[in-house]
Amino acid sequence: MIDEPFAHGSSIIHRIDPRFKAVFAGALSVATAVSYRFEALFFALGLSLLLVIAARLAMGLVIKKLMVVVGFLLLLWLVLPLTFEGEVFTRIGPVKITRPGLILSAQITLKSLSILMMFIALVTTASLVTLGHAMDRLGIPAKIVHLLLMSYRYIFVIEQEYRRLSRAAAVRGFTPGTNLHTYRTYAYLVGMIFVRAAERADQVYKAMRCRGFNGRFYCLAEFPAHRRNWIFAGLMTISLAVLVLLEFTNAAQVLT
């Protein structure tokens, strides 16, 4: 089941209109992704840390979520400095460690951690349902919004069906191993899940037609206006401007 550990809270970030949060999460992460200068990247990291702190999330859990990319980043640190062509930074025995490889690894690390924390602070602090409604209000096509919401709704049902099937296999003495029987059983299981998902979709569509569905979806959610949304928008716009300035002008040199 999809758990949304950050979705509920009473911090200032939680109370900001999800549409504003989604827009700035998008804009900031694009700006971070295209930045290369370390001034800009460290600013992005600082900003994302501030946002996570402002959202008052359980830090242990945030770190746990970050660990997912940390493993991937460690692999990059192992491979890139050794394989990337360029000026040699240092040598360990016969192995060359290149400066561009190190720089690239650092950039990727900073970018991915910042973007992930921005999304944790701004996007996961609203439930997926609220986010769907926010997307609808932002003019994202209804079909995409409903694809998201229906996936959210039925992934749990499909998971239950999977569990039922694997329990049925387990009670008949099935223990997975490295053999053809295991692979075949898993293939049947997956196939069965697809069949059941298709049948489920068919039934849901029938039920929708019974209630007069004619291809149009409606969204009931309302997002009340509040001053704090615009303050947030102002702060985020300034941050975005600073990020862009740091990337495109030699701000660091001007200051020194």
Partner: peptide, 25 residues
């Protein structure tokens, strides 16, 4: 028509949206 499996019928994320689906249509 009330379907045998309520999961087939309740596809909206929240209860209010689901009940309002018919009247809106």
């Amino acid at each position: 028509l009330l379907f045998q499996d309520a999961d087939d019928q309740l596809f909206s994320p929240t209860v209010l949206e689901d009940v309002a689906f018919g009247p809106l249509n």
